[in-house]
Design a protein around this nucleic acid. Sequence first.
DNA 1: TAGCATGATTTGAG
DNA 2: CTCAAATCATGCTA
Length: 422
Amino acid sequence: MHSHTGVGMAGHPGLPQHMQEGNGGTDGDGRKQDIGDILQQIMTITDQSLDEAQARKHALNCHRMKPALFNVLCEIKEKTVLSIRGAQEEEPPDPQLMRLDNMLLAEGVSGPEKGGGSAAAAAAAAASGGAGADNSAEHSDYRAKLSQIRQIYHTELEKYEQACNEFTTHVMNLLREQSRTRPISPKEIERMVNIIHRKFSSIQMQLKQSTCEAVMILRSRFLDARRKRRNFNKQATEILNEYFYSHLSNPYPSEEAKEELAKKCAITVAQVSNWFGNKRIRYKKNIGKFQEEANMYAARTAVNAANASSHGSQANSPSTPNSAGSAGSFNMSNSGDLFMSVQSLNGDSYQGAQVGANVQSQVDTLRHVISQTGGYSEGLTANQMYSPQGINANGGWQDAPTPSSVTSPTEGPGSVHSDTSN
DNA sequence: TAGCATGATTTGAG
DNA sequence: CTCAAATCATGCTA
C-alpha cells in the first residue's frame, strides 16, 4: 500500500483522454475538474488506508457531482451486466450431488433422526445375511460407528452452513454499503449470494462424498460376512452337531428342521445349510477325524433318548421333525440293499445311507455307542471304514434322492411332527 | 506366525 | 432350487 494524497490524472492510463485534460481550461473547466477529482478518488480509494478511505468516501458521497456520476456509472453497468447475465445460466441439479444425497438418506446419515439409522443398519445387516442375536453386539457397534459418522456429518454441515450464512451476510452488507457509491443493484447482490452459495455447496458436496466413503468403509468392514467371519458359539455348534450325528445316515435337515435349528442356534437358515454342507463334506472326507466327536454326540443322544423313553414320552433327538415324515417316501424309493448295510458291519454309520425310518436316529445312536465300547482301535477302524469305493458302491449320502425334497414336510401330512417313533 | 478350523462363496451337476 | 466339491478368507491356537 502506498499512500499518496493527490496524483494528477495523467497518472491514470485507463481514463479517457478528454477527462484527463482537466487543468487550465476556461469554461467548463470547473466541472471537468470536479469529475476528474471524483474519478481519481474512486480509482485510488482501494489504495488508501481504512480511515483515509472512510473519510474520502464520505467526502465523495457528499460531493455535488456524485448523483450525476452515479447515473452514468449505472448506465455503463447496465450494459455490461446484460452481457454478463447472458452467460450466466441457471445450473441444473447436480446428479452426483443427488446420488450422494440419496445414499446418505438410505444409509440413515442424513434425513430423519436415529430411527433411520438403525433401520438402515438393520436392512444392511439383513442384506448381508447375518441376522440373529449372535450379531447383535456387532450391529450395535456398527450403529454406534454410523451415528458417530452421522454426528460428525451434521456438525460439519452446520458449521459450513453457519459459515456460509455469515459470509453471505458479510458480503451483502459490504455490497449494500458499496451500492451507495457503486452502481450495485439488488439483483447484483442476489447473484453474488448465489455464487457464494454455489461455492459453499461444492464444499458440502465434498463433505457428503467423504461421509459416503466413510459409510462404505464401515459397511464393508462390519457387514461383509465373509470378511468378518465369526465362529458360531459353542451352544449352536453343539445343537448342530447333535442333529448331525443323530441323523448321520441322512444328515439332510428338512426346511422345517433347518428353520428350527436356525432358531435354536440364533443363526439364519442359510447358515444352517452352509453348516450342514460343510459338515457333510468334511465328515465324509475324514471320518476318522470326526470319530471321537461322533461317539461323543452319539452317546449323549443315546442318554437323552433313554431318559426320554424311560419317562414314557415320545423319545426323539432334539429337533428332528423330518425323520418321521421322510420315512415313508424315502424308503420306498430306496429300499432294501441300503438297509442291509446298516446291520452289516462294524458300526460304520456312513454307508448305511438311507435307512430313513423314524427309528433311525436311535439306530445311529446305538450303533455309535456300540462302536465306542466295541474295543477296536479308533484310528484303524476309521480308516477301514472310510473307503471311497464303499461310498460309491453303497451310494453314501449322495444316493439320497434329493433329500430336501423327499424329506419335505409337504409330503406326509401330519406325520411330520408326530412322534410316533417306536 | 504357521497351520489348522471353520463359515461363506463359487462352480457345476441334476 | 439344492447339493457336492473346491476354494476363499478369516479365526484360533500352539
